[in-house]
Amino acid sequence: MNNILVYCELDAARVAEVSLELLSKGRELANRLGVKLEAVALGGDLSSVESQVYPYGVDTLHLFEDERLSPYTTQPHTSVLCKLIEEEQPQIFLIGATVVGRDLAPRVSSTLGSGLTADCTALEIGDYEDKKNGTKIENLLYSIRPAFGGNIVATIVNPHHRPQMSTVREGVMPLVKCQPDTYVGNTVKHNVEDYVTAADFAVSIIERHVQKAENNLKGAAVVVAGGYGMGSKENFDMLHTLAHLLHGEVGATRAAIDAGYTTHDRQIGQTGITVRPKVYIACGISGQVQHISGMQESSIIISVNSDHDAPINAIADYVVTGRVEEVIPKFINFYQQKQ
């Protein structure tokens, strides 16, 4: 009762990285509150879930094994979670802010009538003073998220409704294993039939194509990113040449993608991917907060921009003031010569 519950998203039999990140954070919050960490997984083959999640310090693991629960569809997962939450009464329920999590979490929160905060980048525990009636509530979850296109950071609380629900962005919480690989907690295998109805399976998946990601932006040591200032798709294509030469990947701002210079899967920023490469080369990027929040932890930042006062220059280690279509070919040329 009143524990912390984490939804483990599955890709076939593998637990998603963001779920393991949430278990790591969940363990920390559970220790702070003096409660247990519970996890829930739903799918067709859960045989390896225990060994994947227990090293992160899960006390209780709820398993719902049924072929019909994989791949994910909204309603059966919602029904299972809502009933489980009624039984277990967790005070906090965390879900990854993935396509699945962002489909599932609002459906669950609306069913339960509880509050939900989307796309959090930090979670903390703290007190809240309800100014209306002068009461103080201790040990609430602070759900911290960027808002307004990433220009502000808001701290959201749920003073009176349980569970306090949040979806959390991938890649923002570190993975922390706190138990040896041999550690096993308490596994509870539930009978799925007790939790779903036939009507939950009204939506069916006819076809599914999952490709291996076309880029490795998240793991790249070098990222060459372009903004609206690249000016054209042709100019943007130079970045691929540079990235290839440096064994890196190409990223982009939302503005560059809206302008059609490259594809959505390369978007870096608050509504895209968060990256922490060794080197980040920002080309024609002015540096809106929306974008900077997704790359500010890069070790070395190089900015190429015709505007000497571009906001991104403030956080750059190296600033080249000049037109991208002039600077990048020169850079490529000298790099090839010196190598």
Binding site: S114, T117, I156, V157, H160, V289, D317, F331
Partner: peptide, 27 residues
């Protein structure tokens, strides 16, 4: 059910940066 407890403007830590022009020597 959700309440906004606090809103902050984002301020990034400015760094000391090395400056270059687009000239051949600089690049």
């Amino acid at each position: 059910p959700t309440k906004v407890r606090k809103v902050e403007n984002i301020v990034f830590q400015a760094k000391e940066s090395k400056r270059y022009t687009a000239s051949d020597e600089d690049i």
